[in-house]
Amino acid sequence: MSPLATPDIEESVDLSAAPLEPWEVVVWNDPVNLMSYVVRVFRTYFGYSLERATVLMRQVHHDGQAIVATGPRETMEVHAQAMHDYGLWATVRKATR
């Protein structure tokens, strides 16, 4: 066999990638920020409509938390840091659904 020849090898390679697990940004209620400010942050940063931002703010206020974004972990970490920069309490977690 010449040095450039390759032996006949049968290999089975699975090239399918594992699905990306979604992550969530959770904004938590705090005793500091006004509800109107939270709505403004959601509208300014995420581009949510007044209605959507208000629904999320009410979830934060009444339920103590709201999921404001879902996606890849790195992106969600950027969003959580942005919420911190606006003075909101936020965490990143694996999506539960």
Rank of each mutant, 00 (worst) to 15 (best):
A95V: 07
T75C: 02
S49M: 03
M57Q: 13
R40S: 03
S12Y: 10
V27S: 07
K94F: 14
G71Q: 04
L50W: 09
V41S: 04
S49A: 06
P22I: 14
D30G: 07
A18E: 15
F46W: 14
N29I: 06
A82W: 04
G71W: 06
E74C: 03
R97V: 07
M57P: 11
T96G: 00
I67D: 00
A82E: 03
G47C: 04
R97Q: 06
P19L: 06
A69C: 02
V55T: 14
H84L: 03
M83E: 05
A95M: 08
V32P: 04
V13Q: 06
M83V: 06
R93D: 12
T75Q: 07
M1V: 03
V38W: 11
G87W: 03
Y86D: 05
T91I: 01
V25I: 13
L50E: 11
E11A: 15
L88S: 09
S16W: 15
V38Y: 08
Y37C: 10
P19V: 11
L34C: 00
P22V: 14
A66D: 07
A18T: 15
V38I: 14
K94D: 08
D85W: 07
S2Y: 10
T6F: 10
S49I: 03
A69W: 02
R40K: 02
V27G: 03
T54L: 15
A18G: 14
R40P: 00
V38N: 07
M57I: 09
S36A: 10
D8M: 13
E10Q: 07
T70L: 02
T75N: 05
S36Q: 12
R93H: 13
H84P: 01
M35H: 11
L20W: 15
Y48I: 03
T91C: 05
G47I: 04
E21F: 13
V27P: 08
T70A: 06
L15N: 11
L56Y: 05
W23Q: 07
V25A: 12
V55S: 12
V41W: 01
T6S: 14
L56W: 08
V27H: 08
A69H: 02
V60C: 09
R97Y: 00
E21Y: 11
E77K: 10
A5Q: 10
P19R: 09
